[in-house]
């Protein structure tokens, strides 16, 4: 055993190895370069695409659908979750409906979205909102059920009104759960935004991939796929940073930073 190197060194080596394999395989003729261009060519293509305004417009369209859909789903899910918690008996009554609707794959709604909205932002939003709504709602329902009974009784005996009860007790209790839901929903929403563009043809990166593929521009397809991967990573990192920030006061986060 030699001295351990820091983890990023190994990580960089791993990425370099992947690039080397992707460069060598088509060059050596192991795979057809028409179907899998060398890595250098893909990255050069991506560099070239990043200089064109069309790509940035498409990227903006994708991110708009993603952010808007996520925001709508978030507001609707939090409102529905709090309502279900506040109305007596509603949780038990809605359980079967939620458990049935939740696993319905949102891609099943693609034909409906096509009919109702065609190839537009509306289609993207329908799929994104449906997919992310349940992710957040389930976590909100877990969260609001977790309110400490002693704290609840205390709040009642001090005569807290309904609004301050939600604001000072339910919301802080549910927030860590809600953030978990948001983290899951953000990833799902990105997948569905790209899917809607790819399959229905709403404007965005997915449509660019679809156009490049049917036009036989293979390096462009790969470059765009790499780009979606990079955005996916950015989404994950961004939401985690948001989670840490919003929950900075929470014991699960407080100990880890600094």
């Amino acid at each position: 055993m030699t001295r351990a190197l820091p983890a990023p060194v190994y990580g960089a080596a791993g990425l370099a190895a992947l690039l080397a394999v992707l460069e060598a395989a088509p060059r050596l003729g192991l795979v057809d370069a028409r179907f899998l261009p060398p890595a250098s060519e893909i990255l050069a293509e991506l560099g070239g695409l990043l200089l064109t305004p069309g790509l940035w417009i498409a990227l903006g369209e994708t991110l708009r659908g993603w952010a808007l859909g996520l925001a709508i789903a978030f507001v609707a899910a939090v409102a529905a979750g709090v309502l279900i918690d506040l109305v007596p008996g509603l949780r038990a009554a809605s359980n079967s409906t939620i458990e049935f609707l939740r696993p319905i794959p949102s891609v099943a709604l693609i034909p409906l979205a096509t009919l109702l909205f065609g190839a537009s932002l509306g289609s993207t939003l329908l799929l994104v909102v449906y997919a992310s709504f349940w992710q957040v709602l389930i976590q909100v329902l877990y969260g609001v059920a977790d309110v400490d009974t002693v704290a609840r009784d205390t709040a009642r005996s001090y005569g807290l009104g309904r609004w301050s009860y939600i604001r000072h007790l339910v919301w802080p209790t549910a927030l860590p759960y809600v953030m978990t839901g948001v983290r899951l929903a953000a990833a799902v929403a990105f997948i569905l935004a790209i899917t809607a563009e790819l399959v229905i043809g709403s404007p965005g990166l997915g449509l660019e991939i679809q156009t490049a593929q049917s036009g036989g521009a293979v390096p462009t397809v790969y470059a765009l796929v790499v780009l979606t991967g990079l955005i996916g990573i950015a989404v994950n990192v961004g939401v985690r940073a948001l989670e840490r920030r919003v929950l900075a006061w929470h014991p699960s986060v407080r100990g880890t930073s600094q």
Binding site: A7, V225, G229, N236
Partner: peptide, 22 residues
């Protein structure tokens, strides 16, 4: 693990439907 993790994280971050055309 240290070697493979960035590569795996990247592949996981790619939205699976874009793999269909590929």
């Amino acid at each position: 693990r240290a070697t493979a993790e960035p590569v795996l994280e990247f592949f996981r971050a790619i939205p699976p439907p874009v793999l269909v055309p590929l």
